[in-house]
């Protein structure tokens, strides 16, 4: 199954941000996802999936980039013939690259030199993923998913959601 759709990150922060800051704390972007399902009995199935948020964030001159992806291991159950529910653990990763660069920026009274490092970093979080798939027939489906990162920590907990249209390849 290949899917394409919309990714919205940090939903709670988006709706609680002061005026003018919603797009600074949360992003709405495209998402591409591939899934593969394996039956485990008549109604249940195992469905690993991989989602990539596109386009990646990048610096004005392209010297730095940040890629967000989610790897999910979901179990699903067919509720009725056209509707199924999925839930499972996942890993949200943030891969960042930057090349060495110096930047002159205002410091309030004059300008100072600041720096971009020359290295890559990878950060990853455990997530709980859940979602519904509605079959539209002829191989098409509509998918709504919620990803909760840092479920146990109220300061760091984040809610991300996707809405995608999928096609059975």
């Amino acid at each position: 199954m290949a899917e394409g759709g919309v990714w919205a990150s940090n939903l709670k922060e988006r709706f609680s941000a002061p005026d003018g800051f919603a797009n600074e704390v949360s992003e709405i972007k495209g998402v591409l996802r591939i899934r593969r399902g394996w039956h485990l009995g008549k109604r249940f199935y195992f469905e690993p999936n991989f989602s990539l948020v596109l386009p990646w964030r990048s610096g004005a001159d392209g010297s730095s980039r940040a890629f967000t992806s989610v790897l999910g291991l979901e179990m699903g159950v067919s509720l009725v013939s056209f509707l199924s529910w999925r839930v499972g653990p996942g890993v949200q990763s943030l891969f960042m690259t930057s090349s060495a660069e110096t930047v002159l920026l205002n410091n309030g009274t004059a300008t100072s030199t600041f720096f971009l490092p020359n290295r890559m970093t990878l950060s990853w979080l455990l997530t709980v993923d859940t979602g519904f798939t509605v079959s539209l027939g002829r191989g098409w489906s509509l998918n709504a998913d919620l990803f909760v990162a840092n479920l146990a920590n109220h300061l760091r907990r984040r809610y991300h959601a996707t809405m995608t249209l999928g096609y059975q390849l």
């Binding site: 394409g4 919309v6 930047v103």
Partner: peptide, 16 residues
């Protein structure tokens, strides 16, 4: 659809 930029977040951070 995946390549459409719907919110223009860009990287602007620096280190000291």
């Amino acid at each position: 659809i995946g390549f459409v930029t719907l919110s223009p977040l860009a990287i602007a951070w620096t280190h000291t």
